[in-house]
Amino acid sequence: MAAAHVPVLLDRVLALFEPALSGGSAVLVDATVGLGGHADALLSAHPSLTLVGLDRDPDALARSGERLARHGDRVHLVHARYDEMPSVLTRLGHRATGSVDGVLMDLGVSSMQLDVAERGFSYSRDAPLDMRMDSTAELTAAEVLNTYPAEELARVLRDYGEERFARRIAAAVVTARAREPFTYSGRLVELLYETVPAASRRTGGHPAKRTFQALRIEVNGELEALRRALPAALSVLRVGGRIVVESYHSLEDRLVKRALVELAKSRTPPGVPVELPGHGPQLRLLTRGAELADEQEKEHNPRAASVRLRAAERILEAAA
Rank of each mutant, 00 (worst) to 15 (best):
Y184R: 15
E222T: 08
H94I: 02
D11P: 02
A127W: 07
G72E: 01
T136P: 02
T268P: 04
E275T: 14
E162K: 08
V245E: 01
A233T: 04
L28G: 12
A41K: 05
G93Y: 08
E118V: 14
S22E: 06
A141S: 06
E66F: 10
P231H: 12
R258N: 09
S122F: 10
L42P: 01
E143Q: 15
G23Q: 04
G37S: 03
E163Y: 11
L192D: 09
R74H: 09
Q113F: 11
E246P: 00
H5D: 04
R81S: 13
D130P: 09
E118L: 11
T90S: 00
E180T: 13
R284H: 13
P19K: 13
L68V: 02
L188K: 12
V173P: 03
R187F: 12
V8G: 02
E143T: 11
R210D: 02
A3R: 09
L283E: 04
N220K: 08
E190Y: 04
L215E: 03
L191D: 07
S87F: 08
D159G: 00
A117F: 04
A233S: 15
A26L: 03
A150L: 09
L234R: 10
D101C: 07
A45V: 07
I169L: 09
Q213C: 05
V239R: 12
S250T: 09
S306P: 02
D134I: 12
R258T: 10
R179L: 14
Q282W: 09
A3T: 01
Y160V: 02
R308Y: 10
V272T: 15
N301T: 04
V236Y: 06
L114T: 10
T183N: 07
E313A: 14
R238V: 03
A264T: 00
L237A: 14
R310S: 13
V274C: 05
E313F: 14
G53S: 08
D55W: 02
E84W: 01
V239A: 12
V103H: 11
Q282L: 14
F121C: 06
G108Q: 04
L226T: 07
A264M: 03
D73E: 13
G72C: 00
G205S: 12
K209F: 10
H38C: 09
P149T: 08
E162P: 05
E180L: 13
P7W: 03
G23D: 00
G221P: 04
L192E: 06
A20G: 12
P273E: 07
G108V: 03
P277T: 09
L188I: 13
E18H: 15
A232P: 05
V307C: 14
L49E: 02
V29N: 04
A293N: 01
R167F: 11
D253F: 10
F17M: 02
D40W: 10
V189F: 14
A305G: 01
L114K: 09
A142E: 01
A259I: 05
L316Y: 11
T268Y: 06
A293E: 01
E190W: 05
G204T: 05
L21W: 09
E291Y: 05
T268M: 03
S44T: 14
F165T: 06
A304I: 01
